[in-house]
Design a protein around this nucleic acid. Structure first.
Length: 576
RNA sequence: GCGCCAGUAGCUCAGGUGGACAGAGCAACGGCCUUCUAAGCCGUAGGUCAGGGGUUCGAAUCCCUUCUGGCGCGCCA
């Protein structure tokens, strides 16, 4: 829709320039947005205001000049006018809206082709396999997953990747923790170290080790046992993480192992490359990368004084590997606690000679988890934390996913478990799903009154009968869907799609309450069925992009059951 | 101390590349079920856009500054 107007504007400006009414310059980065008050039209632009200074004319004069030269051979517009300080306001003609609606039915209008098959990689989740995923990971995972879905919808060839930190200090600590718990199981009293992992899952792993291998590790050398158990623990936990994510609707195309990168010497070779370009220097026995030469505020260690490579060294090699795979866009979805890492990574990318513009880092702010208003501490180093799995089991996959997508990623997210459980029926996800189910229900009703719903196609229906203001609003909202997807992709902000769906659902519920779809007027009934089918189609597509189910039926609220649950024959509080 | 993110209605948050009277949901209050699911709809009320300066014809939006909260500033990962 916007693109149609943009085109008309560009032509009008060109014509005005030729006629000498405007100076010829490049089109400014004009804003084309729906005005705040919808009475003013469907879209408004501020070109004239932006241009006023450069053109040395009053905004209104410029707007008039553009308007005078505006041609609309296809009848897209119902209205175009200059208003206020010099805005140009446009309203779409019903005819144009009907035509776009038909396109939705044909499946054309939902196809957004921004990508043209370009290769994009989304790397997300990537939690260390040293414990189960917690809610914070869940938010990161959902945002990454939905970004991937959005990019697919927009015509990109997407690869989802999980980077596994399966080597280094933390994995060793995991192995040691399992080892110590294992010895405890054999009757020893152990002073559990501060840096160990205290969670119950470590005891469970130790018990499994005991079941499978008996007393074998009591006899082995401690280092050997710990090394083995590190590998065992890491693999087990990665498996658990993958199951948690799969049950949350999230899968990956590839897993890249840090250990693998090291074993294939990719890390060493990358460091050698930097060294050969003179980008490293030695100081205090360690080797440093000149990150400050590429925009970072500090130089960074890549080889420790004991000769060990740092995590950062692996990460440089990993990103080199990504670039070598030929992606046109790399998207990293990280927890915001890693934000200090962005600059050093970009510096390394630049130093290696790759285009840093290809790499996008989406930072996802912390989830503030509460239970009945009381903060719940999170973190792998604390005994008690709430896992993603627990949350999903409590509030459901759909509600959890939608909740995580309800805020832009760089805002902190408040997530109260009690609230999510107790008032789960108030969760906005139901509002959107209900719109989908309600429409399905109307179709069922129509079938029962003998209408062949599937056979009612837009090209055989008088869409012109949809002439109410509310109907036009609903149609316009439906045909905006591709723009919602485009914006979400362009800004890397999946929450925009969630907001769009809430608006669309709201528009539908309003309409539903105001008009009856099935009536004695067969022609009008068929036109409304076509409209609703397309509303439903967009809601369904949108929910699928968010990884949320689009049910055809939602259990009607059972008041008797609710009252029984409430405990007594209390007054039938008509819930919401 | 330095850096990043946030501070918008009682609560949770949109809007933020400057633009026309500041939006939504929840909570509050008042209405709407003999008709396609009331998990819905309609209405009322609610705001010095954290405070203060500045730039501009115009600032929630940009700049400076103060305050508050979170996170980050390792030869940890």
């Amino acid at each position: 829709m916007k693109s149609h107007i943009r085109e008309l504007l560009a032509r009008a400006i060109e014509k005005a320039a030729k006629g000498g009414e405007l100076k010829v310059t490049d089109l400014p980065p004009l804003l084309l947005e729906p005005p705040k008050q919808k009475e003013l039209g469907d879209l408004a632009t501020n070109v004239a205001l932006i241009w006023a200074k450069e053109q040395r004319k009053s905004p209104r004069a410029i707007a008039e000049a553009i308007l005078k030269n505006l041609e609309d051979p296809d009848g897209i517009l119902a209205r175009a006018e200059v208003a206020g300080p010099g805005f140009l306001n446009f309203s779409f003609s019903p005819r144009f809206c009907y035509e776009r609606l038909r396109a939705v039915e044909d499946g054309r209008e939902l196809e957004v082709d921004l990508g043209r098959g370009e290769k994009v990689q989304v790397e997300f989740a990537s939690a260390n396999p040293t414990g189960p995923l917690h809610v914070g990971h869940g938010r990161v995972a959902v945002i990454g997953d939905v970004l991937a879905r959005l990019f697919e919808a927009a015509g990109f060839a997407v690869e989802r990747e999980y980077y596994v930190n399966d080597t280094g200090r933390q994995i060793e600590q995991l192995g040691l923790s399992i080892y110590l718990r294992y010895r405890e199981l054999h009757g020893e009293t152990i002073a559990f170290p501060q840096e160990g992992y205290p969670g119950d899952y470590v005891r469970e792993l130790a018990a499994e080790v005991k079941r499978r291998w008996g007393e074998r590790f009591l006899a082995e050398k401690r280092e050997d046992a710990v090394q083995f158990l590190s590998g065992f623990g890491g693999e087990s936990l990665l498996g658990a993480i993958r199951r948690d994510l799969a049950d949350f609707g999230i899968t990956f195309d590839s897993f890249v192992s840090e250990k693998g990168l090291r074993e294939r010497k990719e890390v060493e070779r990358t460091i050698e490359l930097l060294r050969s370009r003179g980008l490293l220097y030695r100081e205090e026995g360690a080797e440093w990368f000149r990150a400050t030469a590429y925009g970072d505020d500090k130089d960074r260690t890549v080889v420790k004084s004991d000769g060990e490579l740092t995590y950062f060294a692996s990460d440089i090699a990993y990103h080199r590997n990504k670039f070598e795979r030929g992606f046109k866009k790399l998207i990293n979805v990280w927890g915001a606690d890693h934000h200090g890492y962005v600059n050093r990574l970009k510096a390394a990318v630049k130093a290696l000679g790759y285009d840093p513009e290809i790499l996008h880092v989406v930072l996802v702010q912390m989830v503030h988890l509460t239970r009945g208003g009381e903060p719940v501490r999170m973190g792998k180093r604390l005994g008690e934390f709430v896992t993603l799995r627990e949350v999903v089991e409590e509030v459901g996959k759909d509600a959890a996913r939608f909740f995580f997508l309800m805020r832009k990623s760089d805002s902190h997210l408040d997530f109260d478990l009690e609230l999510a459980k107790k008032e789960s029926s108030e969760n906005p996800v139901f509002y959107v799903q209900y719109a989908h189910a309600r429409i399905a229900s109307i179709f069922e009703q129509a079938r029962q009154s003998g209408i062949d719903v599937e056979a009612v196609r837009s090209n055989a229906v008088m869409l012109e009968r949809l002439e109410r203001a509310e109907e036009m609003e609903l149609i316009k909202r439906v045909i905006q869907c591709p723009e919602a997807i485009e914006e979400s992709v362009r800004e890397l902000e999946p929450h925009r799609l969630a907001f769009y769906l809430l608006e669309l659902a709201g528009e539908f519920h309003r309409y539903y309450n105001r008009f009856r779809v099935i009536s004695d007027d067969g022609e009008l009934t068929r036109a409304r069925l076509v409209l609703l089918r397309n509303v439903q189609k967009v809601v369904r597509s949108g929910l699928h992009l968010l990884g949320v189910e689009a049910p055809s039926r939602m259990a009607p609220r059972d008041e008797a059951a609710l009252d029984a649950a409430a405990g007594a024959a209390e007054s039938s509080t008509r819930g919401r």
